[in-house]
Amino acid sequence: MSKNIFVCLKQVPDTETRFKISDPDTKFDTSTIKWIVNPYDEFAIEEALKLKAQFPDCSTIALSGGPKSRVGEALRTALAMGIDEAILLHFEKDWPSAFTLAKAFAQVIRSEGDPLVILTGKMAIDDHSSLFGPMLAAALEMPFVSLVSSASWNSDHGILGRELEGGVREKVRVSLPAVVTCNKGLNTPRYPSLPGIMKAKKKTIKEVDISAQINVPEGLELNRLTYPPERPAGKILSGSIDAQVTELVTLLRNEAKVL
């Protein structure tokens, strides 16, 4: 079985980042930002590598979208972890919609062909939208399973465990090809090995320019960025612990009215 295992990655600012809105206020200062692979997408990379170990004739292909000036680095990380090939989908627009992205990614995946499965993270830690996975599946007319934290794979289906709100657990059987979004707990992503890093440097990353598809106006545009409202200065209580606890409960009840 020589099919393709696709992994869709997003490059995001490191979680330590403190943001500074620039001028115009639809942008933020990126000069000091450290870019990383979205943490949930690392589970997708690892799952692709596990699948490759199970089905050695398959190829693993990582895809990532964004400016080619920076996104190549995320793809190099995937290659260094052991992914076979990488495709960079170039565009410059900030906050493209899940719809335009899913359409563009679907087109590239179709042209590569023969998908066994398409893996991505359950969400990206920049916009927390979780819409790309199901939209990509719809664009490819495939089924999808979100929030997957356990998996066993066969050549034509997967048995996948998912965790939902309120501790609900589901076991799902999905026919392949399918889009699967990965959650923490699915696996432990490996670190790139030194030989892996050396090998990744030599690999060619294929580039596809999708700017024309991404720049189509489609009814959802960023107007501006703002900072969250400042929280008023809080009250640090004083006195004995007993007095502080009594005061806290009184404040919660009478001032904040949350009890």
Binding site: S97, A98, H128, P134, M135, A138, A139, E165
Partner: peptide
């Protein structure tokens, strides 16, 4: 905003209803 709503609405949104915003 919930997992089930995101999943079925994003799936259903394609291709007729492209505008969907979470959170």
């Amino acid at each position: 905003a919930s997992n089930f709503h995101r999943d079925f609405l994003a799936w259903a949104a394609f291709p007729q209803t492209p505008t969907i915003v979470n959170d």
